[in-house]
Simulated assay, not measured.
Amino acid sequence: MKYTQKVLVTGEDFGPVVKKTIIKLDQTIDTIDMNNLKVIEEKNAVIDKVTGEEGIIRTEREVLDTYTSDEYGNKVNNASQYITIEMSISPSVGSPFIFHETTQLNNWCNPYRLHISGLNVNPDIDVENDDKLCPQLDKWTMNTYQAIDGIKYSYAEYRPSLDDKKHPLVIWLHGLGEGGTDPSIDLLANKVTALADAPFQKCMKGAYVLVPQCPTMWMDNGKGEYKSDTKDCIYTKSLFELIDSYVKENRDIDRIYIGGCSNGGYMTMEMLLHYPHYFAAAFPICEAYHDEYITDDQIDMIKHIPLWFTYAKTDQVIDYTICTIPTVKRLVDAGASNIHVSIFDDVHDTTGLYKNEDGSSYTYNGHCSWIYWDNNECYEGELNAWEWLAQQGN
Rank of each mutant, 00 (worst) to 15 (best):
140 W>H: 08
387 E>R: 10
192 V>F: 01
206 G>I: 02
266 Y>W: 11
100 H>Q: 08
257 Y>D: 08
174 H>G: 09
233 C>G: 06
200 F>S: 12
41 E>L: 10
107 N>W: 12
117 S>D: 12
276 P>M: 02
138 D>M: 08
219 M>Y: 09
163 D>Y: 03
38 K>G: 09
321 T>Y: 05
27 Q>M: 14
88 S>I: 09
100 H>R: 15
388 W>A: 11
265 G>M: 04
281 A>R: 05
70 D>S: 10
233 C>T: 00
207 A>N: 03
39 V>K: 01
313 K>E: 15
120 N>F: 02
107 N>Y: 15
334 A>W: 01
311 Y>L: 12
295 T>E: 01
175 G>I: 04
375 N>C: 09
202 K>I: 15
125 I>Q: 03
386 W>E: 11
88 S>Q: 12
350 T>Y: 11
162 L>I: 15
326 P>N: 05
362 Y>V: 05
93 V>R: 01
365 N>H: 11
373 W>A: 13
279 F>W: 06
304 H>P: 07
20 K>P: 04
35 N>S: 14
345 D>N: 14
250 N>D: 07
109 C>M: 08
391 Q>C: 13
240 F>H: 15
372 Y>F: 05
211 V>A: 08
14 F>Y: 02
61 R>E: 05
282 A>G: 08
197 D>V: 06
369 S>D: 09
217 M>N: 10
81 Q>R: 14
332 V>I: 15
386 W>D: 13
42 E>Y: 00
15 G>D: 07
62 E>C: 05
389 L>P: 04
83 I>V: 13
359 G>Y: 01
296 D>R: 10
82 Y>R: 02
289 Y>G: 04
41 E>M: 12
108 W>S: 02
90 S>C: 04
190 N>Y: 12
368 C>V: 12
309 F>L: 10
283 F>Q: 08
57 I>E: 12
289 Y>W: 10
225 E>T: 08
122 N>V: 06
85 I>M: 01
261 C>K: 09
65 D>L: 07
38 K>W: 01
378 C>N: 09
194 A>H: 09
243 I>G: 08
394 N>H: 14
325 I>H: 09
209 V>R: 05
53 E>Q: 15
318 I>T: 11
82 Y>P: 03
221 N>V: 00
16 P>E: 07
105 L>T: 07
31 T>W: 08
185 I>E: 01
57 I>D: 10
113 R>P: 01
358 D>Y: 02
300 D>P: 06
70 D>E: 05
235 Y>E: 06
47 I>N: 00
268 T>L: 07
190 N>V: 12
202 K>V: 14
235 Y>K: 02
239 L>I: 08
78 N>W: 07
37 L>E: 04
54 E>V: 09
158 Y>P: 06
169 L>H: 03
166 K>P: 04
69 S>V: 11
9 V>F: 00
293 Y>H: 10
130 D>W: 06
280 A>Q: 13
277 H>K: 15
51 T>E: 04
207 A>E: 00
269 M>K: 07
40 I>E: 04
226 Y>E: 10
121 V>R: 02
51 T>D: 03
100 H>E: 13
289 Y>E: 05
